[in-house]
């Protein structure tokens, strides 16, 4: 009945420590599974494509002013990069644990489910920020080439920070769906369709047809990333008639800076809390 190894009994690490352990190994998995590199290559390809096109055609919208350059270059592509990262790293983060039964290897251990969730989220966030950073470097490289290195407008720094907030928020949403569904395909498809199509479609429709500001749509809030790059900041509402002689008035809303930040923060908070609660209650059956 006596115990031999009383002295070296393990002490289960605290929650924060276990979160970091999860982050570390999830990140390792991104590397090993080439998931990270695939996305890196996509980001590099988009960067290379833009570099080639701008270098060859020198479109006026890009090279008339510094701000115009960053607005056209970064503003058009960065939200796409963020959405790709969110889907790549978050789309099946939790659903994959159920579908592939890898969760069975994890949850039988002395670790809270919330630590698994948060740890995986942090890994996805760090990976997405690295991808974003690489794309930023390509953007800045081109900016320096055309306008010199002393020319980073403060608006670009703002835009970069907002892009990071968008990353956090979009990942929160993809994690939520990956927690909601048990099938990876379902959760990945849902997030892609939502972030790339449904959100934009719904906001265009309710803006132009119902004249309602779509403050409840994440991608609408993310437009601040582009908006801060125009000087002056775009007006809250712009209207235009659909064509000459037409009575149809097209209304377009432009999200304000604090509105945009609020929308992204609310999405992040609500999606994260809901995703976590669902995962806590989900059964490995």
């Amino acid at each position: 009945m006596e115990k031999l190894n009383l002295g070296k009994r393990n002490v289960v690490p605290n929650g924060a420590r276990q979160i970091l352990i999860m982050t570390k190994y999830t990140f390792l998995d991104y590397f090993r599974s080439r998931r990270f590199f695939v996305l890196l290559i996509i980001a590099l390809a988009i960067g290379a494509l833009l570099t080639g096109i701008v270098g060859y055609f020198r479109p006026a919208s890009f090279i008339t002013s510094v701000l115009a350059f960053y607005s056209s270059w970064w503003g058009t592509s960065v939200t796409f990069i963020v959405i790709l990262s969110a889907v790549f790293f978050g789309g099946d983060a939790i659903s994959g644990e159920f579908q592939n039964k890898t969760g069975y290897f994890l949850v039988g251990n002395p670790i809270r489910r919330s630590s698994i969730y948060i740890g995986k989220y942090l890994a996805a966030f760090i990976a997405a920020v690295i991808i974003l950073a690489v794309f930023t470097v390509i953007t800045l490289g081109n900016g320096f080439y055309y306008f010199g290195s002393s020319s980073i407008p403060y608006q670009f720094v703002e835009s970069f920070i907002l892009a990071i907030l968008y990353t956090a928020s979009a990942l929160g949403l993809t994690f939520f769906f990956s927690s909601l569904f048990k099938s990876s395909t379902m959760s990945i498809l849902t997030t892609i369709i939502l972030l790339l199509f449904v959100f934009s479609l719904v906001s265009v429709l309710i803006e132009s047809l119902a004249n309602i500001q779509p403050t409840f749509i994440l991608t609408y809030g993310a437009q601040v990333i582009t908006n801060v790059l125009s000087n002056p900041y775009p007006p809250a509402v712009t209207t235009s008639s659909a064509g000459p002689g037409s009575h149809f008035i097209l209304t377009v809303y432009n999200v304000g800076l604090s509105e945009g930040i609020a929308i992204m923060l609310v999405y992040f908070a609500v999606a994260s809390v809901a995703g976590l609660l669902i995962f806590e209650r989900k059964e490995f059956i």
Binding site: R9, S33, G108
Partner: peptide, 17 residues
């Protein structure tokens, strides 16, 4: 579960690790 070892229903392990 602090001092428990478990093996429930042939778990899969992250294949790329």
């Amino acid at each position: 579960l602090a001092s428990v070892g478990t093996l429930i229903e042939t778990p899969q392990i992250y294949p790329s690790l």
